[in-house]
Amino acid sequence: MRDVQQCRDLSEVRQHIDRIDREIVATLAERGYYVHQAAGFKRNEQEVKAPQRVKQVIERVRTMAEEQQGDPGVVEQVYRAMIAAFIEAEMHTHRNNHG
Rank of each mutant, 00 (worst) to 15 (best):
D3I: 14
V4A: 14
Q6M: 10
D9I: 06
L10V: 03
L10A: 09
L10G: 05
S11P: 11
E12K: 06
E12P: 05
R14Y: 08
R14M: 07
R14G: 03
I17M: 08
I17Y: 06
D18F: 02
I20W: 13
D21R: 15
R22M: 10
E23G: 14
E23P: 15
V25N: 13
A29W: 14
E30F: 15
G32T: 00
G32Q: 02
Y33M: 12
Y34V: 06
H36M: 13
G40W: 02
G40T: 04
F41Q: 08
R43H: 09
E45S: 15
E47W: 02
V48H: 02
K49Y: 09
R53L: 11
R53Y: 06
V54A: 03
I58P: 01
V61T: 08
R62Q: 14
T63V: 05
T63I: 03
T63E: 07
M64C: 05
A65G: 00
E67Y: 09
Q68I: 05
Q68L: 11
G70F: 02
P72T: 01
G73I: 02
V78I: 02
V78F: 00
Y79N: 13
R80M: 02
A84L: 07
F86R: 11
F86H: 12
I87C: 08
E88P: 03
A89E: 00
E90H: 01
R95V: 09
N97M: 11
H98V: 08
H98P: 15
G99T: 04
